[in-house]
Simulated scan of single mutants.
Amino acid sequence: MNQNKTVLVFGSTGQQGGAVAKALRTNGWSVRAFVRQLGGAKAKALEAIGVGLHQGTFSDFSSIEKAMSGAYGVFSVQPSSGQGAHGISDEQELRYGKAIADIATAQGVQHLVYTSVAAAGKGKTGLGHFDSKTQIEDHIRRLGINSTIVRPVTFMEMLLLPGMGLEQGTFRFFMRPNQKMQFIAVDDIGKIVASVFAYPERFSGRTIEIAGDEITGNGLQEAFSRAGRKTITYQRFPDSLLQQNALLGRLAELVDDGRCAGVADINALRSEFGCLMTVEQWLAGAGKPLLRAALRAPAAAVALR
C-alpha cells in the first residue's frame, strides 16, 4: 500500500534521517533523500537500498521545492544550530525549519513529520538549538497542514561520544548517580516515525515525546560494566567543568529541572509502537561496536575534562 507513496527525508545522511529512511524502505515506502552530495559514501549506501537521491541545500529553497514535488510525506529535521560539521546559526535553523513546512503546505504534502527535542515546548531554555525548535513547532501548528511532531529524548548514541571517560574505567554524564534520565536509540526513532506515516489518522495533530528507556547514573554504571566486561564507575560531570563550560552547565540544569531528563510515557509508547530498546539491549546490539571503540579510545581523543 505504501509503494505508491513517496516520503522526502531530510537529514538522511545523519542519524535520525538515516534511521527514518531505512525504516520507511523496510516498510515498503518509496523514499527520496535530500542530500548535499550525490557521491558521498552515506548517499551511495542509501541509494543501494533503493532510496532516490535529490541534491540540494537548506539555503536553496528551489532545490527543496524540486525534491518535494509530488511527495506524499515529508520528514523534517535540520542540523541543530552551532553543532556538527555543517553548523548553522539559530536564525538559520529557524528559517530552514519554517521554510520546509511552508513549502510542504504550498505543495499539498499530506503528512509532515517534524522531529524536535524533548526540551521543546516547556518554556525558554536559553539554548538556541532548543528554543528554535519550539518556534518551528509553533509555526507548523499554525499552518493547518496534517502534521505530527516527535520530541526525542537524548540519543543512546550520545552516551558513547568521546570524552565520557570509558577508556579510563569511568563514565561521566549529566545526571546524578540516583537521578533518572530517559534515552532512545536512533533506530527506534526511525521505527516510530515509519509507524506515524503508516497511520496518519492516529497520529496527525499529535506531539509525542519519545523514549525507549529510563535509567539512573548508577544504572548506566551497571549496564556499561556488564557490556564492557570490566568495572565502570559512574560520575556526574564535575562541578568545575559545569561551571567553566556554559553549555554543559546549562544542560545539567535542564536535566535537573526535568526538561532534558525526559518525561515520556514509555509504557504507552511500547503499547503503540511495539518493543523499544533499553540501554542494555542497545549496548548488546547496535551500540556494541561504539562501546568497544570508546573503551579503547586514546587519551588524546578525550574532549571533555
Rank of each mutant, 00 (worst) to 15 (best):
M1A: 15
V7M: 00
G14D: 06
Q15R: 11
Q16T: 04
Q16M: 02
K22Q: 12
R25S: 00
K44E: 14
E47S: 14
G52H: 10
G56R: 03
D60V: 07
F61R: 15
A67M: 02
S69D: 14
S69W: 07
Y72G: 00
S76D: 07
V77T: 11
P79E: 05
S80E: 11
G82F: 11
G84A: 04
E93A: 03
R95H: 13
R95C: 12
Y96H: 11
K98P: 07
A99G: 07
I103F: 04
A104F: 05
T115K: 08
A118D: 11
T125Y: 05
L127K: 08
H129K: 06
F155C: 08
F155L: 10
E157T: 02
M158W: 12
L161Q: 14
G165H: 05
L166V: 05
F171R: 01
R172K: 14
M175Y: 06
P177C: 00
N178F: 01
V186Q: 11
G190D: 03
G190P: 03
S195C: 12
A198F: 04
Y199I: 10
E214W: 03
T216G: 00
G217I: 00
F224A: 01
S225M: 04
I232M: 07
T233I: 13
F237S: 08
S240H: 15
L241K: 03
N245G: 09
R259M: 02
A261E: 00
A261H: 00
V263K: 13
V263F: 12
L269W: 02
W282H: 08
P289R: 10
L290Q: 11
L291Y: 09
A294Y: 10
A294S: 11
L295W: 02
A303E: 13
R305W: 10
